[in-house]
Design a binder for these strands. Structure first.
Lengths: 333, 333
DNA sequence: GTCGGTTACGTCAACGTTGACGTAGGAGGA
DNA sequence: TCCTCCTACGTCAACGTTGACGTAACCGAC
């Protein structure tokens, strides 16, 4: 910047004015400075600028999801990114791997870089680190899972209602033995979906069979094992409700391996690519992922802009997408 | 920091020493400073620190891919992120949407934040903005597509060789009419895969039928149209080589709609989730995405650490994964 | 002609941190 | 005893930028 000022024979302050399109620079000087900046390949230093400016904004937000390579997470990231770009804001992204220690470290890293706000998919268990960061004043929005502490916005989907609807659809087709396969119980979404499952059973007048409930299935492999065990029961389920997409994939693998994919009904929570291309197509509860991301980004930016209205828990509706697997009737033998 | 210093009754410089674990602070003082920092909730400001430090590192790198919600891109991002975390480095991520203007703007944004280096999936067409940034001294590694300018590392896969192998496999099964469906011709990968296709045909002693080549298929919809047209030919292809994953999906949809998925062979470039769950499973050329990401990250970090050896073009081998669709023989009617 | 107002600059200090360097006090050796 | 060296601090300035404020020149109005 000093070099540009010297070359254009003005003060650095005037260069600053030109760069930021502030008034107080004559047209001729503006042109001279622009030319000098171009010829020297000058790039303003945003970090220095934000250090000095009164608003102290870094025009950067942090995004802390479980696994950026997961389609759900990456679609969410993309939605947040689009909204951020719209505001001239860049995104620092990290994967917490659902590990509180790692999440906490990443949060400190983001904080050290003075991000203007964060969008977090909270790791399971206590949220002390998140709460602490929030209490330091960092604008924060939780996605997918709500905070266990107060004063913080979040965006989730209709986990319970949509799960209930899925179970009700299976029941209405005549299924009486509907299994629940869920992710780790520490996850709020898992619990909600399980509650929805229970509500669905109750509403349909079905009684819960405990041995048809398998949880703690983190990853497709564990889901495969669980599905295998379920199908080996003396009275196996005629329908499966899988409460997470990797679990759905694991269950599908087993059904397919046993040639049951046209006989055992399956509804999964969370859509996944090509679910429509399988035979049968997989009926799923589809979350509005871009909608969730957009909403989350809108909330952070509103808070960053000083919105002090009471915290919001936005719920973005999910929809049941019928593709075949969830419309299979129980075998009549 | 001043507050911490005041509370611990030392100078800010001593606080700095304690925070950075530098020698020159007595054990008692260290403890006092630590306690003060804790009680005040002090967080060092990395941007101010990097402004002042001599190495001028921001401990942040930029990642500029085409679309972060694309599974290929997000898997790559994750691999880079893992390697970065290992170095205590955070990742600023952006989607260029294969738009040079947008890519250039994002590059300027990254540069303004003084990232230590960038990993870029170059947008199609000229690479003036990339070259300019590179010439400013920013460590840069291109992934998926090589630079059109010199002095820059890149990591790609065996586009040509693997495409040739795919075509040779189809030819060895007896296919003589093998179609090529490719993405936009401005993309280097598209061109390479097409060249591999030509080499395969030549090596198998087959002659190229121009009407079996369709390119410029950006997205599954265009691929569907092209596949439909191909199958409507008087002498339709008995095998398809689809050179990008969305193109593969589009082609699959059409084959399925026409009931040809067990009769027309299909090999796609790039794996995608659940390709093994379809009927038939889709034979693909699978890139080693984590390997590419890891290598790219290693290269940037080496350059950031001052490695001045000649630029490298790393080639990470892809593998043909046989799942059924690529092993279909031509109908004998 | 004088005055208030505006425009187009410049000067200075500060944002939070650290490199360079200074200094006081104690340990150790000749 | 005196000098040297080391340790444990502190002081100062600077990184690149901008807010606050100053100032010189010019304009129009009375």
């Amino acid at each position: 910047m000093r070099d540009v000022a010297a070359l254009a024979k003005v003060s650095t302050k005037t260069v600053s004015r030109v760069i930021n399109d502030l008034p107080g620079a004559g047209p001729e000087v503006v042109e001279r400075v622009r030319a000098a900046a171009r010829s020297l390949g000058y790039r303003p230093n945003l970090t220095a600028s934000s250090l000095r400016r009164s608003d102290r904004r870094s025009a950067t937000i942090g995004v802390l999801f479980e696994d950026l390579s997961n389609p759900f997470d990456s679609a969410l990231l993309r939605a947040v990114e689009d909204r951020a770009r719209h505001n001239g804001v860049l995104v620092l992204a990290g994967s917490s791997e659902d590990d509180r220690t790692l999440q906490s470290e990443l949060l400190v890293s983001l904080s050290a870089r003075r991000v203007d706000g964060v969008v977090v998919m909270a790791a399971g268990g206590h949220q002390d680190a998140l709460q602490q960061e929030r209490e330091r004043g960092t604008p924060m929005v939780l996605v997918d899972r709500p905070p266990t502490f107060g004063g913080t916005d979040c965006v989730t989907t209709t986990n319970r209602d949509s799960s209930r609807d899925a179970v009700l659809q299976l029941a209405s087709l005549g299924h009486r033995d509907i299994a629940f396969l869920g992710d780790r119980r520490t996850l709020w979404t898992s619990q909600e979906r399980y509650t929805g499952y229970l509500e669905g059973l109750a509403q349909a007048g079905l009684t819960l069979r405990d041995e048809l409930v398998r949880t703690g299935l983190h990853g497709a492999d564990l889901a495969e094992t669980a599905a295998t065990e379920l199908l080996d029961l003396e009275r196996p389920p005629t329908a499966l409700f899988t409460a997470q997409n990797l679990v759905t994939v694991g269950a599908m693998r087993v059904l397919r391996a046993r040639g049951l994919h046209h006989h055992t009904a399956l509804i999964g929570f969370d859509d996944f690519p090509l679910a429509d291309m399988l035979e049968p197509g997989i009926t799923v509860v589809r979350q509005d992922v871009p909608g969730i991301g957009r909403k989350a980004a809108e909330l952070v930016f509103a808070r960053i802009d000083g919105d002090t209205s009471p915290p919001v828990h936005a719920v973005v509706p999910a929809a049941l997408v019928q593709r075949g697997s969830g419309e299979i009737r129980p075998s009549t033998d």
